[in-house]
């Protein structure tokens, strides 16, 4: 039973996290009492997002977190938080490509932690702490965890193939991250327009409205970001993956103890 709990927590995190992200698509009109208060929904969602981040942090830190894990996480968080500020091809791509590569090199659990902590460091460094932060942490954590889960498949394609597969993964996430993060701010302005959210519109109509909104506001932006992701991973992946993997054994050191020598 205790063995099953981590799995249960991850499933619950996935379900609740996705539900909190996607609430504009499914929430019925009558659940939100007055239209004026429909705009409170993002703040409620932020609360739920924060709780999900808290619960998953409690669960993930339960293995042994040694000094090296904390230090590598801290250093990579600083690097990716800074890369977010550096002018790289595509917007914001800096923070993504390192999370994808580190997730691939160190595994899903580390990728999740790195996504969460990189966003936290970036928020502290850039003064970006606010109700949007839980969503950014969850989205980036999912990206890192996904890279860790995806990598064993990608690795079957050989060294070059792995990098290409990860670049494709980063390209897809470039759009997914933009689309998901829009969802946090979109419902702030409920209204009757064809690009606006209105509770109780129904899934199909909401999707239509969101698609129109996304194409009008974010598509070009995200396309540049996604391309930046893919190019960065393609260019640097071949050199960075071995670099990262060389320290992987430090995170979970394997010790073989031979029996002690007899005392002379």
């Amino acid at each position: 039973m205790t063995r099953a709990r981590p799995a249960l927590v991850y499933v619950l995190v996935a379900v609740v996290g996705v539900a909190a992200f996607l609430y504009p698509f499914w929430i019925p009109a009558e659940a939100l009492p007055a239209r004026a208060h429909a705009a409170d929904a993002p703040l409620w969602a932020a609360l739920v997002g924060g709780l999900v981040v808290a619960a998953i942090t409690l669960e993930v830190r339960r293995g042994t977190m040694n000094g090296a894990t904390v230090a590598v996480l801290g250093v990579l968080s600083a690097a990716s938080g800074l890369l977010r500020l550096v002018d790289l091809p595509g917007n914001n791509a800096g923070i993504f490509f390192l999370v994808v590569l580190a997730g691939a090199a160190f595994g899903a659990r580390f990728g999740l932690l790195l996504g969460v902590s990189a966003m936290a460091v970036s928020a502290v460094v850039t003064g970006g702490i606010g109700p949007w932060l839980p969503f950014q942490m969850l989205a980036l954590g999912a990206m890192g965890a996904g890279a860790g889960a995806f990598d064993p498949v990608a690795r079957r394609l050989g060294r070059r193939g792995e990098v290409v597969a990860l670049a494709a993964y980063g390209w897809v996430w470039g759009f997914a991250y933009g689309a998901v993060m829009n969802l946090w701010s979109w419902p702030f302005l409920p209204g009757d327009g064809p690009t606006q959210w209105r509770p109780g519109l129904g899934l199909t109509r909401t999707l239509e409205h969101y698609w129109a909104y996304y194409v009008a506001t974010s598509f070009a932006w995200d396309a540049a970001g996604a391309l930046g992701n893919a190019v960065l991973i393609l260019v640097t992946g071949g050199a960075l993956l071995p670099t990262l993997r060389r320290v992987a054994h430090r995170l979970e050191p394997v010790v073989e103890l031979a029996p002690p020598a007899p005392v002379a």
Binding site: V70, G74, A78, G81, A120, V121
Partner: peptide, 18 residues
């Protein structure tokens, strides 16, 4: 959340070095 806080502290302290 001590470990996560420590990660953030290490990360922030490492920014000028980076």
């Amino acid at each position: 959340f001590h470990e996560l806080g420590l990660v953030v502290a290490v990360g922030v302290a490492f920014v000028p070095t980076t």
